[in-house]
């Protein structure tokens, strides 16, 4: 799963597979961080509240 695990090989297959996986997980985590920051800014009044 990471270069620390025993099976890890530095080859194209590993880089594509885990690259895509970590990109997907990265997008999700960055999205969540952005939401948390936006919420915090709104809570503390640095940003206008959004309604829809």
């Amino acid at each position: 799963m990471t270069p620390l695990s025993f099976e890890w090989q530095w080859n194209v297959e590993y880089i594509i597979f885990f690259g895509l996986l970590y990109i997907a997980l990265g997008v999700v985590s960055v999205g969540l961080v952005v939401v948390v920051i936006k919420t915090a800014l709104q809570v503390f009044g640095f940003m206008r509240e959004r309604h829809f």
Binding site: V27, G31, V35, V36, V43, R50, F52
Partner: peptide, 21 residues
């Protein structure tokens, strides 16, 4: 709870990103 409401709204706002993932 205001914080929850705002969190929910912000989450909803960028839901497209999560949906695409």
């Amino acid at each position: 709870i205001r914080e929850f409401r705002l969190f929910g709204h912000s989450l909803h706002h960028i839901m497209g990103v999560f949906a695409a993932t």
